[in-house]
Design a protein around this nucleic acid. Sequence first.
DNA 1: CGCATTTGACCAGCGC
DNA 2: GCGCTGGTCAAATGCG
Length: 592
Amino acid sequence: MAKGSGLSFGSDPIFFLHKPTVINSFPEDHSKRFAAMDATKNQSTTTIQFPVNLNCAQPDSPVPDDEKPRINDEMDFFADKNRDSKPPTTDNKNSPYYFNVNTGLHLLTANTSSDQSMVDDGMSPPNLDDKRVKNELVVLQTEIERMHAENERLRSMLSQVTNNYNALQVHMVALMQDQKAENNEEHDQKHSGNNNGVVVPRQFIDLGLAAKAEAEEPSLSSSEGRSGDRSGSPINNGEVGSKELELRKNEKKEYSSGIGREESPDQGSQWGANKVPRLNPTKNVDQTEATMRKARVSVRARSEAPMITDGCQWRKYGQKMAKGNPCPRAYYRCTMAAGCPVRKQVQRCAEDRSILITTYEGNHSHPLPPAAMAMASTTSSAARMLLSGSMPSADGLMNSNFLARTVLPCSSSMATISASAPFPTVTLDLTQNPNPLQFQRPPSQFYVPSPNPPQNLAAAAAATPSSLLPQIFNQALYNQSKFSGLQMSQDMEAAQLPNHHQPSSQQQSQQNSLAETVSAATAAITADPNFTAALAAAITSIIGGAQPQPNSTTNNNANTTAPTTSNSGNITTSNSNSNGNNKLCNSNFPGN
DNA sequence: CGCATTTGACCAGCGC
DNA sequence: GCGCTGGTCAAATGCG
């Protein structure tokens, strides 16, 4: 089996393996060994689907002797059906042409039916022709170069697929949004008398649904009085920045006077929108549904850094002491674009302060750098799956499994989905290796066991010092080689979903594969920001996408606004004020 | 001086 | 109604 990684595009076989029957191109005794091996079946052609390897040897790197083909390397040789030229020999012009995926070396084989003499005894030394050997060397050189080009082509193809995947996500979200909006409009016309026919412009959604859910909330359909809302539509981002202060003041007045607060939780106050009535049976169904849509994605990762690097820029707007945790909770909002509704909370785990808990809510309304895209894709996908399921029900459980195994396959052993909280939360626990204890979870949480422990790249990355980075990537590569099998199981699970939730099988397998890659990348990135840059670069090379923006991944503090001055390791909790509320840490970041 | 952070105040939801 | 809690605001402060 090839030792490198492989990537399968869906179920379509790309390369086929044919066992060579006659070897006449290697000066060593490999030809003899291959011939002996195939003497009894030299007419057979075994066709095995096999993924193409994207990490073949570089053309100008010498091939050590121990990497030259061995007898058990037979599986490493691929018939290259895409080659556009035949080797310059006359007796094998109709033969399949093989290359070793590990070394880049090629085997030339004779026609199996016309060159029987070379395989009969299997022990005689090869009849080497110096001229032919030279020719073969030239061919090898050419082929190595060709493979390099092919490698680049495949990378480009994969990059294209990645882009298509993201585009599909956006498109699907848009379609779902349109459909939902139509339903809401019908509903509003039936049940709301204060709409006045005002149609609120739909907000642009980047990757996820949470912001979409905001737009879908019936309350926004009656937000006429909030037209000056600072959140506005992200489409108008350019205006938001200059008028934000004024709008905030106006909003504050409305906020204080209670105008529209209940009915129009604005996007900019998305986190604050949590203050809208929680799961209250006395409220109408739409409000409950809207509440359920305010999904959060929480990431638990071991990190000494004050904040995990997710590729986005954040501005701290508050810090509070939370009940039951001596570590303060910090509140951040995304500042990569004015009006971006995404917020996050950062807090140390009370039980284990080496664990950093980052909770995201909302979806970015602006383009993201690749590093941020990984996180956004994972979190928004998690939220999407969460929102699409009816959690307390059996169906919800099923969908939750589907979530963890499709959207979050790499961290499926650490994915918890809480339906008991006022707002559904997906928790990605990147701090633990899979073990039986992981099942000791509160009954209110659905815990998703790992179907494939080797996929726990996240846990490996989280628990692994940076010195073991190569192993992480080896695992990632190994993980990629599992794609075909994963897709199969995922497709089987997908079959349980209603038809209208299913993309085409090709789209699904494509999305699943890429989602896994993205999830793996995200997990690795979030696990330890100390080697984020290396991870991001390597992951990017794996998925063949654009290189991360230099300042988005190489310096944790350069692209975030995380405090950098309070790394003393001390935790200082101030005394509570008069009502015991709003305890604030004095110049202490929650991560310390 | 501009920007980010800090931090006291404020508000809403919830439980009693 | 009251107190507790979570979340946010915005003036004050710090920093480059």
